[in-house]
Design a protein around this nucleic acid. Structure first.
Lengths: 210, 210
DNA sequence: GTAGATTTTAAACACCTGTTTTAAACTGGT
DNA sequence: ACCAGTTTAAAACAGGTGTTTAAAATCTAC
């Protein structure tokens, strides 16, 4: 069995960048293989099809992200008997920002991918996500309820989906938004700055009076 | 000049439905003309190109929506010297809901289109929007600032974009969300119910302490 | 060094894309 | 009834798509 990593990795790296920048169907296998400097046929050889490549690109991120979020949830569950909503939402901060350490612009790329895949096919994506990472979702919802016990299950459902929309949409266009903020307000913030502005917004929204 | 409306209208109706359902680049002119039961060449004859058709589909909505929002803003400006944030955001309620009267699922279609066009090409869409409807945006932002004078321009910018994400994402998937709510919580709410839950959420987010 | 499996390569495949062309069919006004 | 002007129609265009093929190159282990 020869070393199969180099080309496979080169394809994943090139594909994720093009997917995030231009979208899935706007990116052709020829663009990917050209950028990766590999042969056209190698996408189908290594991944089977373009669709399986898309899935592989997303899964490569989730495989490292979700366990990290799970660890943060465990920490909170064990060490903080009464976390605030902001503390609950903050479980995402470290895992998301640490993506930037293992891959340049990892945060922004992942969230653009998530945004694209979610608007491209919410149904498929939702099923995949709940199927593979359902327990993390459950534990997170339980913490939200604990921090805001006045909320009914249905209110939590709605407000967390509002939150999902806020995050996915914001992060998917975070690059453009940061550019505008730089131009219009002389405000040179990185992705951390966006996240730090986002958390109070969604915490206030989720805990809004009814 | 002969009556050019029928085919042009049939194309717009078919296109907007396919665009909202499957996305712009996933929808081909052949799908559109087949659904509209017109000749393939008529898209290019009547609109010039597929891109101009996309623009025409979106503009048809905005042309009726934005003037209605503008009227609501005028009402608020004239009759309510100190509106709350919730009252400011409520200027969207009537215009958006009235879309459902002139076109079945009009609300959901428009917001799916907005969501798609915004994530597909934020830059182009933003420029178009500000170029054509910039004064409505300005007046709305002024009312937000008046209701929440503590916020800086940059904070308003960020929080209104968070809000945009919440609204677009929620409305784009409102159909699926209402289905889930019905199945999981025996909660049969219509689009008005979603809007009424949305407003307190975004009002609380925009007025969050910093 | 050679045999066997794995990977890379160039070429072709079958199909779909947006758009253009050219001729035919309509239209309303005189 | 005829004649612009406008709209429709079928066909073709040039180029791009994901995928497959079959041969060449490379690698691994004996």
């Amino acid at each position: 069995m020869a070393n199969a990593q180099p080309t496979k990795l080169k394809i994943l790296d090139a594909a994720e960048e093009l997917f995030a920048e231009n979208g899935f169907s706007e990116t052709s296998t020829r663009q990917i293989t050209k950028k990766a400097e590999v042969n056209l046929a190698s996408v189908n050889y290594h991944f089977g099809s373009k669709n399986e490549l898309i899935q592989a690109v997303i899964e490569r991120y989730l495989e490292v992200l979700v366990p990290n979020i799970s660890k943060e949830l465990t920490d909170l569950e064990n060490n903080n008997p009464n976390p605030t909503l902001e503390e609950v939402f903050s479980v995402f901060i470290r895992p998301i920002l640490s993506l930037n350490q293992q891959r340049k612009n990892g945060t922004s790329i992942l969230l653009q991918l998530l945004g694209r895949s979610y608007t491209d096919s919410q149904r498929h994506m939702r099923r995949f996500f709940l199927g593979n990472y359902g327990d993390v979702v459950t534990r997170f919802v339980a913490l939200v309820y604990q921090a805001q016990p006045g909320l009914s299950a249905s209110e939590i459902f709605w407000r967390l989906h509002f939150t999902l929309g806020t995050v996915v949409f914001t992060m998917a266009s975070s690059g453009a938004l940061m550019d505008i903020a730089r131009a219009d307000f002389d405000e040179d913030i990185a992705i951390e700055g966006v996240v730090k502005r986002l958390i109070p917004f969604i915490a206030a929204g989720v805990s809004a009076p009814r």
